[in-house]
Simulated scan of single mutants.
Amino acid sequence: MAHSRSPTLAVVTGASSGIGYELAQLCAAHGHDLVIAADEPGIESAAGALKGTGVTVHALQLDLSTTQGVDRLCAEVERTGQPVGILCANAGHGLGKAFLDQDFKDARHVVDTNVTGTLHLLHRLGNGMRAQGFGRILITGSIAGFMPGAFQAVYNGTKAFIDSFSWALRNELKDSGVTVTCLMPGPTQTEFFQRADLMDTKVGQDKKDRPQDVARAGFDAMMSGEGDVVAGWKNRVQAALANVTPAGTLAEQHRKMAEPGSGRD
């Protein structure tokens, strides 16, 4: 079904597959033209599928852990000449294994993607949204941010930062016309676990949520102006328990899910 040209743009990062692609589909279904980005060549095939919805799609393969990647994305947004009505800051990477066994370049890349690059993009595009007096921001955090992530220590630490930051930014923007929503999924059936080298772990092998369902929960919460949403009832129970469980206990529980080899019978 074709749409008339949207007066506003939706920017979605990490949109080549998984939750990001599903978020882009939902934005397109609501008639928003798209600027989508990812660090994988699959962003081009995603763009081809999204163009079938009748909206204009600008796709970029770039690394949002770098200043240059964020600059390129923002330059493309400016070239469209359209105001940003929706920003889905979804790009993120995971990393399994014990912290001291990781290559530090890999650990730093997770921090630079999940935290530094996300903040840089929010600062650049958020200023424009505040100046125009409207817009909706959806930041993909995680229930991982509620627990010390033994054998995923860096990833969980970045998500704890993002979960907290999103609430602070929401408060700062409360009178601006711009809303901020944090989507906090649990384990979701995406390429995350392969890319993070977690396939031999219990969490890598366990049943996961569908990305379509997670994206729909986040999109609906964003459109309603909610502060956050934990996707899936099991994850909501886990998040609630995490708030009253000692950190040492949570770390040991996480170890049983994420320690290399824990997925073997």
Rank of each mutant, 00 (worst) to 15 (best):
I36P: 00
A231G: 02
A98E: 12
T190K: 00
S65L: 07
H3M: 14
P185F: 06
D228V: 05
A217M: 12
D106P: 02
P187M: 11
F151P: 05
T53A: 13
R236C: 10
F99Q: 09
P187N: 03
V115N: 03
K159R: 06
C74A: 15
K174W: 05
L87V: 11
D39A: 07
D213Q: 09
D209P: 02
E226Q: 13
A10S: 10
D197M: 11
G69T: 00
P185D: 08
T116H: 00
V214M: 07
F165D: 00
F146K: 05
P148Y: 12
F165G: 02
T140Y: 06
R79L: 13
P7H: 15
G177Y: 07
T140R: 04
A24C: 08
A153G: 14
H30D: 15
R136N: 12
G126K: 05
V244R: 13
G145I: 04
L183Y: 04
A150Y: 10
W233M: 10
S4I: 12
A231C: 05
C27M: 10
D220V: 15
A107V: 13
N171D: 13
M223Y: 08
L173V: 00
N156H: 14
A242S: 15
L9A: 07
V229P: 01
F193S: 00
F192N: 02
D33P: 05
G81Q: 09
Y21D: 01
A239M: 13
A89Y: 05
G133T: 08
D175Y: 09
Q61M: 08
M199E: 08
L9N: 00
R79D: 11
V178A: 03
A29T: 10
G20C: 08
D220N: 14
S176W: 02
